[in-house]
């Protein structure tokens, strides 16, 4: 009788499928093509959804006239300023709350009662406090960034392995150095999760604040062209926002890789 050969095959091959690197590009160009086609065939009127080429054409015109740049700079200053302030405060307070049981007991209930307030609801109050200049917009972004960063820093600190703290103290670290050399780096991965979360919040608050009270800024621009029913220019603003969000995220990813090389 001839031997029967029964080969055993990898039955979990579906877990590691190989995808060619050009596929993601294909997805996005496919979407743009379909979009363009729908507009060219007049299935949707251009007032509701202008073609990508029309958006690019009008966008280019806004760039060369300097209009887009002016709005972009106004928005960038606000968001970067607010983000920086919120981040620095959030990390600092998070470290303190995480390290000191006393500070934790006193301030954490306060933090958790303010945290759920949608920050944009505070804008009228903040405008009352700071007037209608740049301050309230920066402040509202800082406030929106502060909480997620604080809460992530706090939980990052709590998740630092106590044995590392014991080791550091054994080898002579004082409290400040324990925070600086053990707790801060140990919490850094979680802090970055907070930073990414806060980036989304910052963008949201930026646009909302600019729509409520601003002359310049991408939010104001989008609202302006919406009121005038110039959809192409409105869409140019929206695409710029998407680009901004993408850039923000990429920047943070890059920073994360730089600052956390041990992961």
């Amino acid at each position: 009788m001839a031997a029967v050969k029964q080969v055993i095959k990898n039955r979990v091959a579906f877990l590691d499928q190989k995808v060619p690197p050009y596929i993601p590009v294909l997805g996005i160009t496919g979407l743009l093509l379909i979009w363009e086609l729908i507009c060219r065939l007049n299935i949707v009127p251009p007032l509701f959804l202008p073609a990508p080429t029309a958006i690019v054409a009008d966008g280019w015109q806004m760039i060369s006239s300097g209009e887009l740049f002016r709005h972009l700079m106004a928005s960038l200053t606000r968001i970067l300023g607010g983000y920086a302030i919120g981040t620095v405060l959030g990390i600092t307070v998070g470290l303190i709350l995480g390290f000191s049981k006393w500070a934790d007991a006193i301030f954490t209930p306060i933090v958790y009662s303010i945290y759920p307030i949608p920050k944009i609801a505070l804008l009228p109050l903040i405008i009352l406090w700071f007037g209608i200049g740049e301050m309230p917009k920066v402040a509202i972004i800082a406030l929106g960034v502060f909480f997620p960063v604080l809460i992530n820093t706090f939980s990052g600190v709590k998740n630092v392995d106590p044995i590392l703290i014991k080791a550091a103290v054994t080898f002579g670290s004082n409290h400040l150095n324990v925070i600086r050399k053990v707790i801060l780096p140990g919490a850094l991965p979680t802090i970055f999760a907070g930073l990414k979360l806060a980036a989304g919040t910052a963008l949201l608050l930026l646009v909302s604040a600019e729509m409520i009270a601003a002359q310049y800024g991408i939010g104001a621009m989008v609202l302006h062209y919406g009121n005038l029913m110039i959809t192409t220019k409105l869409m140019a603003g929206v695409l710029l926002l998407s680009l901004l969000g993408l850039l923000f995220n990429r920047g943070l990813q890059w920073l994360e890789r730089r600052l956390i090389p041990w992961k």
Partner: peptide
């Protein structure tokens, strides 16, 4: 005192040299 821990407890963000000199640094 010098302690060698069961969990080893090297600081993950420091390389070998930086871990070894930790006590000297402090």
């Amino acid at each position: 005192l010098g302690i060698v821990f069961q969990e080893i407890a090297l600081l993950p963000w420091r390389n070998v040299y930086e871990n070894v000199i930790y006590g000297l640094e402090e």
